[in-house]
Write a protein that binds this DNA or RNA. Structure first.
Lengths: 224, 224
DNA sequence: AAAATTATTTAGGATAGACTAAATAATTGT
DNA sequence: ACAATTATTTAGTCTATCCTAAATAATTTT
């Protein structure tokens, strides 16, 4: 019984993947929040995914959900689609990074493997999407992500912005105006670790910028 | 009550549009065949579309269906999406005209107006898709289609191939091998009108080709 | 024009995936 | 450790869209 993966199921798997990246099972409520549906509905779907053949998730009451191998591969497939599409729309249709998310959210479920391959080939098999997130390879291996939150950077340390974890258009536009885009070089001038506030020198910019946790926890860097 | 148009409803409207292009209402069975579902299911959906506010189709029992103005605009929107996407995939990802149909069939339902506009702009607002079908304009006007079936050409008449009405990959490949692609110049050498068989000179090709109705009724031409 | 055939509609169900309200389990605060 | 709070699950519904079987209407044949 080769189960057809509906849009809805693909979304569940994608979000479970993201919620379990820290190694912890995903909770019903967290999933419900992300999916924008009621917790009770999530429980129902989870039970179905856990008892399907083959099972896509592994689940024990009140213990949260994790992906099985099958489920993980399906999730990576969707994530690969999403990130390739974002990169493609930005590169070929002049979208900006803050505009592509919703479009990719819909397209990710309907492109064929053939189209996926053509998009990837047309762009030379990119490793990152416009937000800096790694794009799983065609054989569904997620590239190692060596980035760390800006808030984790030590004093006087230099690094390069490698990823921004947000789909909030306003925030993304703001970051752009600060020069905090993928590839930007930064150096910490002052850090207040407790509340994750920092003063930062952005290469190519005269004035340092002062950032709060809403930003320092969402902008990721790699030490060069 | 702004009804959300589901994929399913968009498909109904698109097929009703195509079936009613000859001015005749679409029958339940014809629609069912095209949609690949049971006639009874079509009746149910039609009744719903006819009684929605605003109505998308106009319907009287046993008399078939036609589109209302609202319905026609919705159908043209889907058709515009479909044809723009076909043109786009062919032009930017090297698809051939016989491969894009299924892909467009899925994408047509999920692209935003914004993406539609960007695709159209990137291609200079094309008037025809790769099959030669007219692409409705952004304000949903279908360009006049002056083409006629190849089988309707008179003896010794010259014309240009302007459209091919088929999604059959094998047929499309065959036509390609005969040189019968959009833009090809042809001249009728011999016609057997009764059974729609004809012998045709294709410009740039040494030997004439002999064609039966499976082809002469699906290849359309414009007299230059 | 009656009979036979074909097309269409009605009636009754199924499934997917959401919801709410109520019940239960787990966690947190004191 | 017990009470209060929060998270999760169960039970029962709802909507969209499909299905099959049976009934009816339209069309075609004779």
């Amino acid at each position: 019984m080769t189960e057809h993966l509906t849009n809805s199921i693909q979304d569940y798997l994608k979000h479970i993947y993201e919620l379990t990246e820290d190694g912890q099972p995903a909770t019903t409520t967290a999933l419900a929040t992300r999916l924008g549906i009621a917790p009770a509905s999530v429980t129902g779907m989870i039970q179905k995914l856990a008892s399907s053949e083959p099972a896509l998730v592994s689940y024990r009451k009140h213990q949260g959900v994790t992906l099985t191998d099958k489920g993980r591969r399906a999730a990576l497939e969707v994530i690969r689609h999403h990130r390739l599409i974002e990169a493609w729309l930005v590169q070929t249709l002049g979208y900006s990074w803050d505009e592509v998310h919703n479009e990719a959210e819909k397209l990710e479920h309907v492109i064929s493997e053939e189209l996926e391959a053509r998009i990837a080939a047309a762009m030379g098999n990119p490793l990152r999407d416009p937000h800096g997130d790694p794009i799983p390879s065609a054989d569904l291996v997620m590239p190692e992500d060596k980035s760390m939150a800006l808030s984790g950077l030590a004093l006087k340390q230099e690094a390069m912005v490698s990823k921004v974890e947000s789909q909030d258009t306003d925030l993304l536009k703001h970051l752009e105006s600060l020069g905090l885009v993928i590839g930007a070089r930064v150096k910490t001038l002052e850090v207040s670790r407790y509340d994750q506030v920092m003063r930062l020198q952005v290469r190519g910019r005269n004035e340092p910028v002062v950032l709060g946790p809403a930003i320092t926890n969402r902008v990721f860097v790699e030490i060069k």
